[in-house]
């Protein structure tokens, strides 16, 4: 009986940990944040006065899938920041669980790869959890409006992690184009295989 009780507790606990993380659905307002950038300055949405939207990327230093997308994220910023859609990358792993994701390692990686976008340290993972980011890299495209910032697309950059498909579907670029034309992206949600986010207490 005692064993059964503990088994039940473990089962319920296992269920609730993943249940707590709910990914924001398109149409919801984008949670505001103020996080430390690799240059030690705090960054939030309001630091981009001419932005029409934001490409929020939950990523990390260590995940092979996230690393495979680094160059594509750099290109996205180069291409879309001048059009009003800058990349804001947020490291979503807890550095005590993923030692390659400390603030210092983030600075190092940004330097190596010459990141021209913000790469933010999410201390306590509050922003990662507020968006309900589940894997790396996990994209949240945000449309800016005078009233509020709205999430319009969540999911993958494209359907080609290995970057070698001839019929690649660029989900995110299509979504940005839709937003530029004042339309809702279709699809507004995509999924991709990625690394689980290393969460404290999970």
């Amino acid at each position: 009986m005692k064993q059964l009780f503990f088994a039940l507790i473990a089962f319920v606990a296992a269920g609730t940990v993943s249940a707590q993380i709910t990914t924001i659905t398109p149409g919801a307002s984008a949670p505001a944040f103020a996080l430390k950038n690799i240059d030690n300055k705090t960054v939030s949405f309001t630091d981009y006065p001419s932005a029409k939207g934001y490409i929020v990327v939950f990523t990390c230093n260590t995940c092979p899938v996230a690393k495979a997308y680094e160059d594509r994220i750099i290109t996205l910023h180069t291409k879309y920041a001048p059009l009003g859609f800058p990349v804001i990358a947020i490291n979503s792993n807890d550095p005590s669980l993923s030692t390659g994701d400390t603030f210092e390692q983030m600075q190092q990686r940004a330097k190596e790869k010459n990141f021209s976008f913000a790469y933010l340290y999410d201390e306590g993972q509050n922003t990662t959890n507020a968006y309900g980011a589940r894997n790396t890299p996990h994209i949240f495209l945000v449309r800016r409006s005078p009233e509020k910032n709205i999430v319009v697309y969540t999911g993958a950059i494209d359907n080609d992690p290995e970057n070698n498909k001839s019929d690649k579907d660029n989900f995110l670029e299509k979504a940005i184009t839709a937003v530029m034309q004042d339309k809702m992206p279709e699809p507004a949600v995509t999924k991709a295989i990625g690394c689980s986010i290393k969460r404290k207490g999970s």
């Binding site: 990914t23 589940r134 999924k191 991709a192 990625g194 690394c195 689980s196 986010i197």
Partner: peptide
């Protein structure tokens, strides 16, 4: 349907 795609 609840899977985000995160491994494992």
């Amino acid at each position: 349907s609840s899977w985000s795609g995160a491994l494992p």
